[in-house]
Design a protein around this nucleic acid. Structure first.
Length: 423
DNA sequence: TCTCCGATTAGAC
DNA sequence: CTAACGGTCTAATCGGAGA
């Protein structure tokens, strides 16, 4: 006896970061615009108008400058506080439509509508309510598996006639086959650039080709990942809905610098900020880490400059989430690797071997672990209450030297009173 | 020859 | 200031070390 077909909806925000910027600037509704990555480096979100003008996703901004000037394309630095806040509102609204849902990313949510009557009406209602309450436009794709829900969402986005909602489950077998024959395999979730090429070499060009491909060959040539993808395309669920997302196994904090850095204290200052950030994430999930890794990088795009990309990891004496304690190790590792005569462009820290604090193992040799638990608690409370960066580990004024470029940032409309314009 | 583990690859967003 | 190219995360796979 087979289980009933899932009615799984994928709700995906349209051009999410651009849409967030437009919520507070309705005058930009039809203006070609983009949002840039950290350090104002690459395009990470484009309006439809910018896309139509040929701006590519992930393109370095300096490469777009000429085109941007010709067509008056507006660029914004990314404002993650704003995007996170709007994302939370969108997810909160969606969660009221069905008990089972998974927040998949900052702009996507799977909603299980199985057994919910009036699927069509509910789908359009989700779209309408999110639009009315947040100003963010979304599209809804429905399918029997996550992979097909994603594909349905792609169809909803691409065809204006769908009015933002597409239900794969409502198609006849002939309609399904016809649809999949007209979608390139690269649109499938999990099929990226490399796999697209490799699939093409095997004569697999469309989603339909992939769905119908010879199973043992596909398995042998592409491994279990592609096998799962194929089964999902055959309407056999292989990727489960994850309602509660597991704790992170690894926490990385790294940044490219606004300017090249040549001095050890400046690197250490940057790393102390990264450590503070990483440990706050660790504490937020009530975990501690047993290993810290630090890495430094010169600018890999500057072929004219000497390159140096060292990385060093050490086990911490005991698992911890104490910013001050971890910071001492970061500074030491940095000093070990630091060499003058290089221009550093990026640095970062990795916390690994993460486990819940409840699993701390009693150590007979070290019964009294020195750590600043109460200090960290107070620090987290202040930063949560008054905004990230309210309290931080002391810097010696090196801060300005490494801070990323953010020359086009919009105000923090939703999270900082000081930034709200008084009309 | 088998197993383990770190490094590498691929992908998502 | 006149060059400039993100950040985080997971899972699978690979390849060498050691049992």
């Amino acid at each position: 006896m087979g289980s009933p077909v899932q009615q799984l909806a994928l709700v995906d925000c349209n051009n999410f970061y651009v849409s967030c910027e437009r919520v507070f600037r309705p005058d930009l509704a039809r203006v070609p615009m983009v949002v840039l990555s950290n350090n104002d480096g690459c395009v990470v979100s484009r309006s439809n108008e910018a896309r139509a003008l040929g701006i590519k996703m992930g393109q370095p901004w300096f490469e777009c400058k000429e085109l941007a000037e010709q067509h008056s394309i507006l660029a914004f630095s990314s404002n993650y506080a704003l995007y996170a806040d709007l994302s939370n509102r969108v997810m909160s609204i969606l969660s009221n439509f069905a008990p089972r849902h998974e927040v998949y990313s900052i702009d996507e949510c799977f909603v299980d509508l199985t057994g919910i009557p009036k699927l069509r009406e509910v789908s359009y209602a989700m779209r309408a309510r999110v639009g009315q309450w947040t100003g963010i436009p979304v599209c809804v794709g429905i399918g029997p598996t996550k992979t097909l829900a994603k594909l349905a969402n792609h169809v909803a986005k691409k065809h204006p006639r769908s009015r933002g909602v597409f239900n794969y489950n409502a198609l006849t077998p002939a309609q399904k086959a016809n649809l999949l024959q007209h979608i390139p395999a690269e649109e499938v979730w999990g099929v990226g650039r490399k796999l697209t090429k490799k699939l093409a070499r095997h004569g697999i060009e469309t989603v339909h080709d992939l769905q119908q491909a010879h199973v043992p060959t596909l398995r042998a040539e592409f491994g279990v990942v592609m096998e799962k993808i194929q089964r999902e395309l055959q309407e056999i669920p292989c990727i489960e809905l994850r309602e509660i997302q597991p704790d992170r196994q690894q926490i990385i904090v790294s940044r490219s610098f606004g300017n090249m850095v040549t001095e050890l204290p400046v690197l250490q200052d940057a790393l102390s900020a990264f450590v503070a950030n990483a440990c706050a994430k660790l504490r937020a999930q009530s975990s501690h880490a047993a290993v810290i890794q630090v890495f430094l990088q010169t600018n890999r795009f500057r072929k004219d400059l000497p390159q140096y990309m060292p990385s060093l990891a050490v086990p911490l004496p005991y698992p911890t989430n104490d910013s001050l304690g971890v910071n001492r190790w970061a500074a030491a590792l940095c000093e070990r690797m630091f060499r003058p005569d290089y221009q550093y462009k990026k640095a970062g820290i990795v916390l690994c071997e993460i486990s819940p604090v409840t699993q701390r193992q009693g150590d007979l040799l070290e019964p009294q672990i020195p750590c600043n638990e109460r200090l960290m608690k107070a620090l987290d409370a202040l930063n949560q209450r008054y905004g990230r960066g309210t309290v931080k580990v002391s810097t010696q004024g090196a801060y300005r030297d490494w801070q990323m470029r953010q020359e086009r940032k919009s105000p923090n409309y939703t999270t900082a009173w000081d930034d709200v314009p008084l009309v």
